[in-house]
Design a protein around this nucleic acid. Structure first.
Lengths: 342, 342
DNA sequence: ATTGCCACTGTAATCGATTACATCTATGGT
DNA sequence: ACCATAGATGTAATCGATTACAGTGGCAAT
């Protein structure tokens, strides 16, 4: 035994009086070695303080035991909770989670694609639906091809498995809720125009509106970027309009909070002067003043489901449905930021 | 060239008409090969679509090109922004970020220590000061020893380098602010009792209070857990007291928001009936109603600094000061949740 | 011409674990 | 008694890149 460096499999083999092959087997396929031998190996491993060298194992096994998670914006609390679901599930199966903030990395394209390459990770979970087509092509094409699943968002082409929520239904729920309260003039606040969620939630909202016979005006569709700040900007726009919607459906909670905050700063109150409903049900929503009415989605489950989809696909790469979408339910949380029109 | 599998360094060597050694050198130490050769190799690498195999490199070089970040709670927006700073800095130096949620993992001790072991990562950044002593011992002791730096929080023993903020000063700033507004009866809301930040901010606050000649009562020191919910619980306690403080200094923003929210739900207003000041300046603080007065700390910089401390220590493991602490400044952000006593 | 040095490139050992294949032993069937 | 078979273990090739060491050729100094 060598005290200056970490023990290797050979040291364990010597200590246990067996070959390295046996040690390896005892450790990773216990059922294939005799019980007596197995115990001797296990004892020796404990005694020497042996820890596996992942680089060596990975090289030999041709896999990494880690997956990368693409996050559009790490600072956003919405994502970090999905991340928590992903991390805990993956940790349970002994896998590592490599994080990449796609906003930061887009500039550094070279490094970025490097991450996604085989030898860094066995697969990808993307919370970002706006990956460039180049990148998607690369991930699909022959040698570079990698298992990838989306969570929450999904790629425009929608050719990859994903865990998501019924966004159209969520939007319809929101609109219905406002309609029931008597609102007929309802605006929509979206995120970046390219974003799938912006689009799908807009569609859901517009469908519901036309079904209910409400008019929709082009300039009642506001454009934000999912940030608090952009919500505040939307509020400014709203304030400067002559004919205004009496209610606003925001594509996420943060923008909704931004709207409410800015309105308040200008002497108006929610829901008295404007009803506001959000989407996501982030933690702070229920503690905000007024508590935010919103559409909740099960963030933890989204993360967990995405991991399971990916693991499934890693195990039997052959017979996995390539277009599997798991759609989780959505729920209206009725709080105090919406009220009957008077 | 083999179309069915990813190209290896040998394929590039053949394509460029040189040896694998030269390819390796051209790629990782360009200055050591002749320009002509280098270009040939680079072209060949491009042509074959070569990507390095990290497992092989890691095995040979005996390092992993990744570091692990220990996060107490991924769901907490405060941490995720520090994480963003860490990720972007590390990505720039081509390193990967392995994330571990310590709350989830503590149960699974075995997996947990496995992560921290050499062959998974070259070093550790911990945002969690409450690592068990066992673990700390293990990380310090001979063969297992790993470079580790703390960010924000730090270990009780304080024997590792860290990037942090002047918490005592932050607390004093908060207390001074309340004092200036006329408050003499000031309470403190801390996080979990074992947490360093809870303790140091309490000390800072208590020192400031006694210096200013304010009385401190045991039961004016409330115990939360940094969550919104715990803030709401503290508000309940406050409501049920006969003699109450007129102002509350909360050890983080979320608890402050929880307090304000719960008070409001009970018909009381901040700052009219109680002044509340927080700590951290999370994004939502300035949009809350009322906008939260708080002590801001530079989260992104904390992350960046921690990475730099770690990288420094990875490069010259010998002559690095083992107890280096970088202390960043803190700032009072005066908004609307505190007001003069009337 | 000889020597020494420098710049460059190639050969082959190496990192540590896994696993295909070979070997050996014991067991049961005939 | 003999063979087939299964179970247990050992031997050695293997994963792919890096790098110590050993050339090789060219040029300048002597």
């Amino acid at each position: 035994m060598n005290t200056t460096s970490t023990p290797k499999i050979k040291d364990v083999a010597i200590a246990a009086g067996v070959s390295t092959a046996t040690v390896s087997r005892a450790l990773s396929k216990p059922e294939t070695v005799a019980e007596e031998t197995r115990n001797a190996v296990l004892d020796a491993a404990r005694a020497t303080g042996y820890r596996i060298n992942h680089a060596a194992r990975n090289l030999r096994r041709q896999k990494t035991g880690a997956i990368v998670v693409l996050v559009p914006n790490l600072g956003n609390p919405f994502f970090s909770e999905i991340l928590a679901g992903i991390e805990s599930t993956l940790a349970n199966s002994g896998m590592g989670v490599l994080m990449v903030d796609t906003q930061q990395s887009q500039g550094n394209k070279h490094l970025f694609t490097d991450y996604l390459h085989h030898s860094r990770a066995d697969g990808i979970i993307s919370l970002d639906g706006s990956l460039s087509n180049d990148l998607i092509d690369e991930l699909q094409s022959g040698a570079e091809s990698q298992p990838i699943v989306f969570a929450c968002e999904w790629h425009h082409s929608d050719i990859f498995p994903s865990a998501r929520v019924n966004n159209r239904r969520g939007a319809a729920l929101a609109i219905d809720h406002l309609y029931q309260l008597g609102h007929r003039d309802i605006g929509y606040v979206g995120g970046p125009p390219g974003n799938v969620l912006t689009q799908v939630r807009a569609e859901g909202a517009m469908n519901a509106l036309t079904e209910l016979g409400c008019k929709t005006y082009e300039n009642w569709s506001f454009q934000g970027d999912f940030s608090l700040q952009s919500g505040a900007k939307v509020a400014q726009e709203w304030l400067s309009m002559k004919t205004r919607p009496t209610a606003l459906f925001c594509a996420n909670d943060e923008m909704a909070l931004g709207v409410i905050s800015e309105l308040h700063a200008n002497g108006l109150e929610v829901p008295k002067h404007l009803s506001v409903i959000g989407f996501d049900d982030i933690d702070v929503a229920q503690y905000f003043l007024p508590p935010l009415t919103t559409i909740s989605q099960p963030r933890l489950e989204l993360g967990i489901t995405a991991v399971n989809l990916l693991l499934e696909r890693l195990q039997n790469s052959a017979n996995a449905d390539p277009h599997e979408h798991t759609v989780l339910p959505v729920k209206l949380i009725n709080r105090k930021s919406t009220a009957a029109l008077c």
